[in-house]
């Protein structure tokens, strides 16, 4: 799946994220155990699993919101260590959407979207605003640009959060349960934006329980439990023919109601 990247030539490497033998502990608690994962450029991966299985923690390790204690994480050819410069370099190229959006409530939608390009990428303000408008149009809320996040619905806020990440022109997007805090009516408007993004070839890692989304866009579905990757497969295989017992149980619980 070699997709054209909007940033063009600088990408020679086909691997977007590489995780080798990664472990993480919260104090005494061993949250992530021997994670090995390779994500190719343009690949869309859905990560699911019961709560507490470590799926959010894993994707949060990819932009170092969580620190891993053992093993290796290489994002875009940059290894994540305690070196702040490397961390900032990775974060510039990796966008993230959170369950609770984490928009900045004291800034307007426009300011939310232009802040990082202006301060991190040093883009002139006017240009940053044009880019922001482009992405706000893409997530279908350009008319809200001058409102504050508190004045928007949950679905709109999540779409702004996606636009805010896109304004940084990221090569990889991480989604940490982007629809779990939304009312049922608003889930589809967010999923539509994500599907749209997937179809353009963005490298995506999504922690989600939206199995319809997984079937539609994922190249690979990963099932995690107890801090380990239990199973990974193409969506059709994964849903129709799950291998491990744990996966079967999980699927029967989330699909049968």
């Amino acid at each position: 799946m070699a997709n054209a990247n909007p940033n063009g030539a600088q990408i020679t490497d086909e691997i977007a994220v590489q995780i080798n033998g990664m472990h993480k502990w919260y104090g005494e608690f061993h949250v992530l155990k021997d994670i090995n994962l390779t994500v190719n450029r343009g690949e869309r991966i859905v990560i699911c699993g019961p709560s507490g299985s470590g799926k959010s923690t894993m994707i949060r390790c990819i932009n170092r919101l969580e620190e891993h204690q053992q093993g290796q994480i290489i994002v875009n050819g940059t290894e994540l260590t305690s070196d702040l410069k490397q961390i900032d370099a990775v974060r510039r190229e990796v966008g993230m959407c959170f369950q609770h959006f984490n928009l900045f409530p004291h800034l307007t939608i426009m300011e939310n979207c232009t802040l990082a390009p202006i301060w991190v990428r040093k883009v002139p303000k006017k240009e940053a605003e044009e880019t922001a408008m482009k992405y706000l149009e893409r997530v279908k809320i350009p008319e809200q640009a001058h409102k504050y996040p508190g004045q928007l619905s949950g679905g709109q806020q999540q779409r702004v959060a996606i636009a805010r990440s896109l304004c940084m022109n990221p090569e990889i997007m991480l989604f940490d349960e982007p629809t779990s805090a939304l009312d049922p009516e608003m889930i589809s408007e967010v999923l539509d934006v994500m599907i749209d993004l997937a179809q353009e070839g963005m490298t995506m890692l999504c922690v989600t329980h939206e199995m319809g989304f997984a079937r539609k866009v994922a190249n690979r579905v990963i099932f995690m439990d107890g801090g380990q990757i239990i199973e990974q497969n193409e969506p059709e295989e994964f849903f129709n023919n799950p291998q491990s017992e744990r996966t079967q149980l999980f699927l029967s619980q989330i699909l049968n109601h």
């Binding site: 993230m96 991190v120 805010r164």
Partner: peptide, 21 residues
């Protein structure tokens, strides 16, 4: 909330930018 720190971190803002902005 912790989410505000994480939101700022995930955009690649430095410590001082995150605090100030």
């Amino acid at each position: 909330p912790k989410g505000q720190y994480e939101g700022a971190d995930s955009l690649g803002l430095t410590y001082w930018q995150k605090m100030r902005l």
